[in-house]
Each structure stands twice: as C-alpha cells, then as structure tokens.
Design a protein around this nucleic acid. Sequence first.
DNA 1: GCGACAG
DNA 2: ATCTTGTCGC
Length: 222
Amino acid sequence: MHLRHRHSWNLSPSQAIAHQKEMSAEVVSDRPIDLGRVRLVAGVDVSVKNGHSQAAVVVVTYPDFQPVETVLATMQTPFPYIPGLLSFREGPVLEKAFEKLLNEPDVFLFDGMGIAHPRRIGIASHMGLWLDRPTIGCGKTLLCGRYEALAEEKGASAPLVDKGEPIGVALRTRTAKNPMFISPGHLADISSAAALVLQCSPKYRLPEPIRLAHNAAGNFAP
DNA sequence: GCGACAG
DNA sequence: ATCTTGTCGC
C-alpha cells in the first residue's frame, strides 16, 4: 500500500509529543463507516522479543474472515514503551509491513487506541493519517477516560468519556469477559467503529483479524 | 505535588 | 509487550 510519510521516526519523546499535537488536528473521527460496503478488513499487531519487533498485517474477507493476505516485517525496536507514545515504538516496523501490502483493505483494526488517547491520537489514528484509510483502535485495557458499568452480555457497551468528551466505547465482545475499548482511529466514528468490531468478534474477545495478526506476529526468533 | 499509564 | 505450568471450567 502507498503510505504518506508525515515525519521522521527518529525523535525524542518531547518532539514526538509536539508532532502528535499537530497531527491530532487532522484526524477525522466523525465519519461513519458504511458496513454494507466493507469487503476486506485488516488486523494489525506487533510482537517484541529481545530488542526486535515483528509486525503482522493480516487481511481477511468480511463478514466471513477468510485470510486473503499476510505480510510480516522485522526490525530492531527503535523506541521505548512510553504510555501515550506507543506509535513511535511500533510505527516504524508497521510502516515496513504496510509497504509490502498488496491489497487495499476497507478498514484496519489496531491493537491499541484511536482517539481514546490524552492527545486524541493513539496508534490507530496516527497510522490512519499515514494510510489515509479508515482505522479503528481496539484496546484491551484503558489508557484514559472513564465509563459506567455495562451489562455482562456480548454486545453491551458504555460510552467512554474523557474531560467531558465522548472518545469511544467500552464494548463487551464476549459475554462475561472484560470489555474491549473501541475508538475511531481516522475516517471512522464511534458508533460504526463499535458496530464493525462487534461484527468482527464472532467467537473470542479479540476481534478475529487482530487475533490472526497477533498469532502471526508472535511467531519469530530474533 | 500525586496518581495514572495502550503495548 | 514478555517471563512461564498447570489447572479450573464450558
């Protein structure tokens, strides 16, 4: 896939934050995804071992999740894990993987946040700007914001709010399991993002495309 | 100043 | 994220 390079990855934490503040103004998080037109969904994940990172992007058909393409990329892990700056750790190796991608997925699902981020630009939003395609953040734990208790049944959800702003939803993708935290990355809105993720979770808590990417990324020996 | 903190 | 075996439960 063609990518739009926005900045160098070789940055200090304070420079990274400055770029986030500029880029967050470009993120589009109020545009519904038309689920009826979705044909290909990509799951994105990164695994880290002994100072090396491997990215996996798995493209599957929607709504039946048949694998269409898998790409991998590896490199030395370039940046430490700092809450709020995850994209500067995983972005470089993801860029390598995206460059190999032949298909053009209708939407990308990321392991991490979209706008549910202190500066409203988590990894799904950030990479969405580079991809210029719809992206959704799917976090397993919370980075910021609050939510009220939600029902135990699959499909139940509660608004995720930070500083008075709706930034996503806590979504139960599996009955009696901890909710996932879903937020628009770029070119998506909260409700359609949640609806798509629910449709992408037929059996497990993790959405199927992300599960497949997680398995593919974790299989390497640096 | 104190607490919180995606992967 | 990763380090790690068995074990409780549908």
